[in-house]
Structure formats: C-alpha cells, structure tokens
Nucleic acid binder design. Sequence first.
DNA 1: ACCTGAACACCGTTCAAGT
DNA 2: ACCTGAACACCGTTCAAGT
Lengths: 176, 176
Amino acid sequence: MPSPTRTTNEEVVAAAREIVETAGAAGLTMQAVAERVGVRAPSLYKRFADRDALLVAVTEAAIADLTERFEAAAPSLPRLAAAYRAFAKEHSEAFRLMFTPSAPQEALQRSAEPVIRAAAARVGEEHALDAARLLTAWATGFLQMELAGAFRLGGDVERAFEYGLSHLLAGIEQDG
Amino acid sequence: MPSPTRTTNEEVVAAAREIVETAGAAGLTMQAVAERVGVRAPSLYKRFADRDALLVAVTEAAIADLTERFEAAAPSLPRLAAAYRAFAKEHSEAFRLMFTPSAPQEALQRSAEPVIRAAAARVGEEHALDAARLLTAWATGFLQMELAGAFRLGGDVERAFEYGLSHLLAGIEQDG
DNA sequence: ACCTGAACACCGTTCAAGT
DNA sequence: ACCTGAACACCGTTCAAGT
C-alpha cells in the first residue's frame, strides 16, 4: 500500500536554509535536515540526488529571495544597494554560497536584471551592463569583506559603504 | 628514547596547501595531509589543534604569498590589480578562504599595506584608505564573480576587468 | 509508492601504549 | 619526546526489506 508523502521538496529546502543560516554550510547534514522535517536521512535521497544537490537548491532559493527584494527596490540604485546589503547580512551563509562555482548561474543572471535595468535608466542601454557589473562587483566585494570582518578596525563601515556607493554612482554617470 | 621529528609545520602546511588547491577545502582531510608528509593522522594534532587550525594556517600562508606579490608589484596600481587577479586564478581556493570570518585579519591588514601606499601616492594620504578599499572591494567582487562563473556568457572578461579598473582609477583621482 | 534499518566507507579526534 | 593503533562518534550514501 502506497505510503502518503511525509514531506515536500519545499519543506526540505526551507529546513536546509534554516540550518545553513544558523550552523553554516558545514553544519548542513542530511540527518539534521531529516530530523527537522520528520523523516530519516535516506528518504531525502528520493528528493535530492545528494547533499550537494540540496545545497544548490538552498542557494537557488536564496537567490529567488534576493531577486524579489531587488524587484521591490528597483529602479533606485541606492535602494538596490541597500537591499543587497540587507540580504547579505540576514543570509550571510547563503550569500557566500552564491559566489561558488556550483551556484545556479541562470538564477543569478535573472536576479541581476533589475540592477541592469536600473543602470540603463541612469547611464543608457549602451553602458548599462558595464555599469551594473561595476556596482555589483564593488558591492559584492565590500559585503564579502565586511562579513569576513575586514573592517573590524578602521572606522564607520556604514559611512564607507555610502562613500563608495555615491562615488561609484557619480563616476558612472559622467562617461562611458 | 625520543623519536626524531618526522616532519615540520612548514611541510604540513605546504602539503595542505597543495591539497586545498587540487581538491578544494572540502578535500582537505587530516588523513590526506598525513599521508602526504609520511605520518599518521593523529600525529598532526601535535602541530595543529584541529583541522580548522590547519585551514587557518593554509590561509595565512596564502596571504603571505599574496603579500610578497603585492610588494613586488607596488607602487603601480594596475600592476597590483594584475597581481591580485593572477593570485586569485592560481590559488582560487585559498583566495576564497581569505574572505571567511576565520581568516587571520592581521595578515590581511599587512597585505593591504602596499595597496594603501600605492593609493596614497595617487590620491594623497587623506583619501588613501577610502580609495584602496574601493579598489580592493571592486577587484575582490569581480574576481569572486569571475571564479564563480558569473561572466561565463557576456563577452570578454579581460576587457571588462580593464574597463572597470581604468574607470575606477580615473574616478578616484579626480575628487575626495 | 514511499519510508526505513542496517550496513559500508570515510572522517575528525582522543588516548593509552609503544619506542 | 614523538608517533601510532585502536577506538568512538558522526557523516554520506546505498539497498534490501517493510508497509
């Protein structure tokens, strides 16, 4: 007799996201996830090929979350930057996963679209991609360094972020 | 009777670095390191408190390597940027480790000094730190994205790096 | 059809015992 | 003084057996 399904992919990914955020990617064990959704570890392999596939699903869910925030913040570039920073702070572990070779690139491309459109409104279609990449690279590096503790000494991080952002926005507008 | 030492901390770290670079941080097992230096895994705990301490030592050695390259490239900002990119490509796994909360921040601060001095020569002492951070954050984010495959589509990565760099250098020089 | 216990290979780590 | 085998707890993963 067929057993009724005891959990769902969504529930598994949600549990995995919580574990990743509280215990880090290294803390994501199949047993911990299984316990959280009320099954045994081997059952998870019916849904995800292996631990790595689950980790990719976690990354993808995080990217979808970020994309929503971007869409809500667009087309203001300062608000996009603030949304990015807020996301990185709330989901620092998932943020790190996004810059791993196994991250789903199509999802990342989609998340970048609001940024590219906002850049286009500011500097025109022709330079939109370059401008968006400049801003994204800077913000990504800044947040990565901030999360790693690189700014622990050396003054007001808030102010440094605002300084960098306004500087880049001004620079981007004036040429091509 | 005292046994003669069969390996050294330096040899252990060197072996660990090779493993990290070929198999990734996840591939760094105490047994693999031990085999490489000709001892058994438990012996490594005489030298490093645990696997994490060894990983920190690997990160620190990589930062020392980067610092040497920076010192050789200074005070040219384009050469510093090129050195950073070359390092990231040759030691992509260690590069990622550098932006982890457990990375040794004092070593990272030291590695940043040639960049800050080069920035000072370009924009003056007063804005050197801000300028160096702007450049470093951008380059770090760019390389992180490049290594993750974010630029797999979308044209000439080389050109995009040069574009971003020259744009930032021009922007940095003109104001404060 | 879905779930599980049992099993396997592998890992980090400790420690008493060897030299 | 340094090294090791043996052991423990834990992990990912597979699979035959349950319902």
